[in-house]
């Protein structure tokens, strides 16, 4: 379990990162927290002639809020997100998903950008980004590009980032009004990748009817997924009954495409996925109905 030989680069600016990626193309790979890439290199499941370590690029760290969105720069660690009060106020779903990622040691190294660019379909952040319609900011030598989350994830461990580009930031819309959020998953052990998981974001109007709904699925297909049919069913309606939530869970599984592996069967994932969608929706709707606070001030749990 020793990686194949590679050349190590440690640039300190985004320009230098873009320059190295332009120079080495698909022989280079950006190294973020290394929590997935390094084991894959050690197992020789993948190899790159050049590793471009982003850890010394100070401009790639930090969180800021402006104009209704929260910008999380790519090298912000999961541990930093977990502790950040602004994240908890502005994008509660991101804050609540974070403790489910690995173990604290992993979150100390793992980064928001690394997790999203790795695009494991069973991980939490891709589903959060997709559900909230986040925007991905990519930089290459030829400039900056913004990509919608719906166009970002292309397959298991595959995104639209090309070999010359680096993910530098993710912009999460801040939901206003009476909102509620929930993230739940079933994993074999604490910290494992989810067998199935769901995130839900709900806004209700003054009458308590659902105004906005977003449901993200993870571990339930080759990429993170949106349960569009279930979302459409909710919007404009009063809060569902328990049976109604169960039916929405079933409906959400129309958008799922899970697989069998050593940990669980596809049918298990569907059944549990439906259950988790029902639970997260019920929890998010209830939180939204309880919310009287101004926009963006939903309580962190």
């Amino acid at each position: 379990m020793k990686p194949a030989p590679f050349e190590y680069h440690a640039p300190e600016s985004v320009d230098d990162v873009a320059g190295l990626l332009a120079e080495h193309g698909d022989e280079a790979k950006p190294l973020a927290g290394g929590q997935s890439l390094v084991p894959m290199l050690a197992l020789r499941l993948t190899r790159f002639a050049h590793l471009v370590d982003l850890n010394r690029v100070a401009a790639l760290r930090g969180v800021s809020r402006d104009n209704g969105s929260l910008t999380v720069r790519a090298m912000t660690t999961q541990a930093a997100v977990e502790r950040d009060a602004e994240v908890a106020r502005a994008v509660p779903l991101l804050a609540r998903a974070t403790p489910l990622i690995g173990h604290f040691q992993i979150r100390n190294r793992g980064t928001v950008g690394g997790s999203l660019a790795h695009a494991d379909p069973a991980s939490e952040y891709p589903a959060v980004a997709l559900a909230l319609d986040a925007t991905f900011e990519l930089v290459s030598k030829s400039g900056t590009t913004r990509v919608a989350a719906s166009d970002f994830f292309e397959g298991t461990w595959q995104t639209c980032i090309d070999a010359q580009q680096a993910l530098v930031a993710v912009h999460f819309p801040v939901w206003g009004g009476r909102c509620g959020f929930a993230c739940e998953e079933v994993a074999r052990r604490a910290g494992d990748f989810a067998l199935a998981g769901a995130v839900a974001a709900i806004e209700v109007d003054d009458a308590g009817a659902v105004r906005r709904a977003a449901v993200g699925l993870f571990g339930l297909g080759p990429t993170p997924l949106r349960a569009h049919a279930a979302e459409a069913e909710l919007i404009g309606e009063p809060p569902p009954t328990p049976d109604g939530y169960r039916a929405l869970g079933q409906l959400a599984m129309r958008d799922a495409d899970p697989v069998d592996d050593v940990h669980a069967s596809a049918s298990y994932r569907r059944r549990v996925g439906a259950h988790l969608v029902a639970r997260t929706l019920a929890s998010a709707v209830e939180e939204a109905r309880q919310a009287h606070d101004p926009p963006g001030a939903a309580r962190a749990r």
């Binding site: 197992l43 052990r189 604490a190 910290g191 494992d192 990748f193 050593v262 940990h263």
Partner: peptide
């Protein structure tokens, strides 16, 4: 073999 890493072969941790 389908279980050649600790991602696949799960041993209990203190949390379990």
């Amino acid at each position: 073999p389908l279980t050649t890493t600790f991602l696949d072969y799960l041993v209990p941790t203190a949390a379990e």
